[in-house]
Design a binder for these strands. Structure first.
Length: 276
DNA sequence: CATACGTCCTGCCAGC
DNA sequence: TGCTGGCAGGACGTAT
């Protein structure tokens, strides 16, 4: 899916265009993207103003009038697209939700696999949801000491730990693997064996990778698009993710792929030795 | 409680 | 050419 850099890119694309617009009408073409009835969803959005656009972890958070929150989680293949001007026949085969806006424009949610979902929550309900997520990796308030304290109480492989949104919010498989490469940590290292120095390097690597990816407007492997429909350019900068067999950019050893936790992990066996 | 694994869904691509 | 199996950025539910 869209991970933190992709969601942040979408948010930055929507921020200049959504606030100041009102939802004239909501259409639900795919019911299973919602956890409430489409009638309740449509009624809840109708005539609400769009006030703010934010992000928490991998969620796009739209603040509406009456402090309601429309929270969009894009799953693996979700797209959130803004169309300006009068509603054209913006038809995609997997269009799930369409919000018609005034002044004229539209916000579309499109999702091939439909692993994503949209929530319409009160301010209080959103606060509770948000509290279940871990800290934001780019928040300067998260210190290396905090980070190590969180990681070092887990017996999970560090790659799995990074993917757990209750530990840290926003990291997915691409950037977890890239950060581990930069920190020279084997993806299967149990969290509690990671030293303070190593976890400092991991947090630094993670922050560098995430900020570089935001600068490139994210990684488009296949489905991800920015809010205006563009692609992300970070794919060419990936050092290990998806690069089985190609030369490690540091030492030229062939990149390996292993599977655990039902996900692929990519790493350099020489730069990221399992034992230490 | 923490951790591990299968599952949801569709599409694409390599290999036969 | 056409089919089949494997794989995909996520996250939830269930089992242990």
């Amino acid at each position: 899916m869209p991970e933190l850099p992709e969601v942040e890119t979408i948010v930055r694309g929507l921020r200049p265009v959504l606030p100041g617009r009102r939802i004239r009408e909501a259409q639900v073409l795919r019911n299973d993207l919602l956890r409430i009835s489409s009638g309740a969803f449509r009624a809840g959005l109708q005539d609400r103003e769009l006030l703010e656009v934010g992000r928490r972890g991998k969620n796009v958070v739209l603040t509406l009038s009456d402090s309601l929150r429309l929270v969009v989680n894009l799953g693996m293949t979700g797209r959130l697209l803004f169309l300006s001007g009068p509603p054209g026949e913006a038809s995609s085969p997997h269009l799930g939700i369409k919000l018609s806006l005034s002044p004229p424009g539209a916000l579309l949610y499109d999702d091939v696999r439909r692993f994503g979902h949209l929530l319409l929550l009160s301010e209080e309900a959103w606060r509770e949801e948000s509290a279940r997520l871990g800290p934001e990796p780019l928040d300067p308030a998260l210190t290396p000491e905090d980070f190590h304290a969180l990681l070092s109480v887990s017996r999970s492989p560090v790659r799995s730990w990074l993917l757990d949104q209750t530990h840290l919010a926003g990291v997915g498989n691409i950037y977890a693997n890239e950060a581990l490469f930069r920190a020279r940590l084997h993806p299967a290292r149990p969290g509690h064996t990671v030293t303070p120095e190593e976890s400092r390097a991991l947090l630094e690597g993670l922050r560098r990778v995430l900020t570089d990816a935001i600068r490139a407007r994210g990684t488009t492997l296949r489905d991800y698009r920015t809010a205006s429909g563009g692609t992300g350019g970070y794919g060419v900068e990936l050092e290990v993710y998806g690069r089985v067999g190609s030369a490690c950019p540091r030492c030229k050893a062939p990149v390996r792929r292993i599977v655990f936790g039902n996900r692929s992990a990519f790493f350099c066996p020489r730069c990221q030795p399992e034992d230490r």
